[in-house]
Write a protein that binds this DNA or RNA. Structure first.
Lengths: 208, 208
DNA sequence: CTTAAAAATTAAGATAGTTTAAGAGTCTAT
DNA sequence: ATAGACTCTTAAACTATCTTAATTTTTAAG
């Protein structure tokens, strides 16, 4: 198999965590485009694997946002802290999700968001330069990211609709139904900050 | 000039509204990719120009969403009506914007949104089939739509952040600053339904 | 195992937003 | 030009959500 050939540090015959993570990254990309061995090698080269620990910050609000992340396993949260200290969670990324402060990544601006690792996780990072060059080296990436952003746009638009049209209770119930795996991993405080309400209020909603 | 050659119905030498609209469509696409004469001819063929009137519905909630629209001039609103009759405006599209119920267009499902023409407008429509075939015929469209969806995603994500973190008053002020041309064209009731509050409450906010 | 820190719950009083209703102003179709 | 329909404003009563603060429960570190 391809991985067995290119992976150098794997002295025994077991499949390492690194390998598993890489397989997940490539499988994710191959959901939308076809990759040959050369493409995979290229991606293996430009995506940097990292094992990260709970509470680690992949990005700190105010710093230049240089990386796009793929969460192979574990979970990451993107949130903004306003001037008066209020936290708002923009998204949770669990296995198989992509995450960064996309606006600031694409425009190489100071991040509006922090990225916090919620549990020990395996992630890949892609630099801004590699992201831009990738489209020349591997033109099918245009298609891959077209579909990725297409889905992301549709998801956010639906979230906007729910946010402006439903009650907090309805939104909470929808969240639990839609993302049960996330509910298991994150605190209620974080869910409240995702819904845009106080933890106290979310608590009273749950009681009902 | 290219347009003068391919445009057939233009018997005098003036630039028709149709021509102007086509120029806007092509200019919009050329913001992100390079088109040669053949590409333009292709696009001219697959994009259908329509002059539409105020109050016309380009799409009715519940019907299959078959088209993607480009607003060359005028304005269009996308909104959802909930079971209990409450309207929520998802977006306004003015000159140079693309609009449809993207989720239902991409998945060929029954529309969650209606598209209402707010003033006499010039639009182009692209069918779902043409959208999908377009990527084969003109592969650069992957790039064009990648960037279009990238921007759309970032915009929606920022709207989510504002919606969950700011007060209604702050969101109204931001809207007026960000989209002054829209404010001139739409009713206050429609802005209220975009912000997710009642027209009465928006009215009291403005008083301050 | 213990203890400190963080999360979750509860409740009272304050603020933001809705509902209903009525009146004044605008637009639009005969 | 006028009637009807729609928009905008105002206000009072009501509901949702926030703030503060105290109490309990859970989590994490030594």
């Amino acid at each position: 198999m391809y991985l067995a050939v290119t992976k150098q540090n794997n002295l025994d015959n077991t499949v390492s965590t690194d390998d598993e993570s890489l397989i997940r990254l490539l499988a994710n990309i191959q959901k939308h485009i076809v990759l040959d061995a050369k493409d995979m090698e290229y991606l293996h080269r430009v995506f940097k694997h990292r094992t990260v620990q709970k509470k680690e910050l992949l990005l700190l609000q105010g710093r230049l946002c240089r990386k796009l992340f793929f969460v192979a396993s574990g979970s990451v949260r993107a949130f903004n802290v306003s001037d008066d200290g209020k936290e708002s969670t923009i998204m949770f990324a669990i296995d198989d999700w992509w995450i960064t402060d996309m606006y600031c990544f694409l425009n190489q601006k100071k991040a509006l968001l922090s990225l916090e690792v919620l549990e020990d996780s395996e992630v890949f990072e892609l630099s801004y330069e590699a992201f831009q060059k990738g489209f020349e080296k591997l033109p099918q990436l245009e298609r891959f990211f077209r579909i990725l952003f297409q889905n992301a746009y549709v998801r956010e638009q639906l979230r906007v609709l729910e946010t402006i049209s439903l009650t907090t209770e309805e939104r909470y119930r929808n969240f639990v139904i839609k993302y049960p795996q996330i509910v298991e991993k994150v605190t209620q405080k974080q869910i409240a900050s995702y819904l845009g309400v106080t933890p106290e209020f979310l608590s009273t909603i749950k009681k009902k």
